[in-house]
Design a binder for these strands. Structure first.
Lengths: 218, 218
DNA sequence: ACGCAAACTTGCGTGCACGCACTTTTACTG
DNA sequence: CAGTAAAAGTGCGTGCACGCAAGTTTGCGT
């Protein structure tokens, strides 16, 4: 495709980005997330605070990015890698599960941190939106040009489902927020590991994926 | 259900909320959206700036709320109002179309304003998330307790679809952003009125709604 | 009618996001 | 090997979001 050579400019940019991510995470772990100002992160990475905001739009994004960096691209690649024979719904589901189960030591620690602050939790959940564009691209590829529109909707729905799964997963056990939205029947199933939750959240969308896929094969 | 009498406290709160909304919209129309500070809105509504932020989390929300206020509730009610015989997918789609076609004079003017600033546009698009909880509730009601989980995913997906429809709809014609995400085949259909776009965006989800609905009828 | 507890408002202080104008660095061309 | 244009970094200034710790109002029980 389009990878001439990456050029010094781009490499420096990525280096700065990574420096900011790592500095943010390290400082947050060391002192606790509330004792880290943007100024500190910028200084630790050797750039000005203003430059920090050229890379990340909020204080939380850098910390969260240390966990989620590149996940969107990996999910898209994983979907594209599945043989064309398998159901699109399965390809997407498994790609998602696979990438979110990527539990490196670094990430486990960071996730623990993230659960402790709602601002971080929210920033983390917002990253699910990042998977939408690449997902749209790979889905569109399978559906053909007529399904470009559909691809967009399916990708957004999948992203929404993932968000829901994550939301439930990293909900701290302690809060009595579960019985909030329903008047009477409080028989909800609170359980499940992350892969289970992801699969369960994506399952209801499978018929939509199937229908879209079927439409292209006619 | 639960409407004892609303009480003075609550009525005052709503009054303040509405005062802020109206003040925000009026000032934005009068002077242009960039010439309105939170301080101005608060003053015009007779509260402190700090109180403004107890009601709205951003400067844009008040302006946008002047257009979207109560839409979530109306959509939910509209869905619940459809006879139990019609397809759930249709009920949701028509309820959404109905409520977004609510084109009062006030709103038309405000929408025009909103398109002129991306910050406003984004805030407006973010309000689609508000329909998710009420939609979850009415869908869950139709699906029964076993489908609570599914209801959540379907509601979120519908909200995402609506967002996509709106995004495309109020995209200013002038920007060459359309050919961005696709490498080669730039044959996209740019067209459509808002109801068309909404229906088109929700259509791919219909199979998922059908499947969920079918599952409860077994 | 009284008084208390909970809810709402407000002022203050802090850190943050970002537009703008300017300097420094990188890339490309003759 | 310039010279130049584009891009990234930076300092400054402004308005904003929000925690906190008062003050003020509303609701309710007795």
């Amino acid at each position: 495709m389009t990878t001439p050579p990456p050029g010094l400019r781009e490499r420096k940019k990525q280096a700065t980005r990574e420096a900011l991510r790592e500095a943010a995470l390290r400082l947050a772990v060391e002192r606790g997330p509330d004792q880290v100002r943007v100024e500190d992160i910028a200084e630790a990475a050797g750039v000005s605070p203003r430059t920090y905001n050229n890379y990340f739009a909020s204080r939380e994004q850098a910390i969260v990015a240390a966990v989620t960096s590149g996940r969107e691209a990996r999910i898209a690649t994983a979907v594209a890698a599945r043989p064309a024979g398998v159901r699109l719904a399965d390809a997407v589901t498994e790609a998602v599960v696979e990438q979110y189960t990527n539990t490196g030591e670094h990430e486990q620690q960071a996730l623990l941190l993230i659960t402790t602050r709602t601002a971080l939790r929210d920033a983390f959940l917002d990253t699910t939106a990042d998977i939408e564009p690449p997902l749209t691209a790979v889905i569109a590829e399978r559906l053909g040009d007529t399904g470009a529109h559909t691809a967009r909707v399916l990708a957004a729905s999948a992203a929404a489902a993932v968000r829901i799964a994550l939301e439930g997963w990293l909900r701290p056990a302690g809060n009595p927020e579960a019985a909030e939205s329903f008047g009477a029947g409080g028989l909800v199933v609170p359980s499940g590991s992350l892969p289970d939750r992801l699969r369960a959240a994506l399952a209801p969308l499978a018929p939509a994926f199937d229908a879209a896929e079927r439409r292209t094969q006619l």
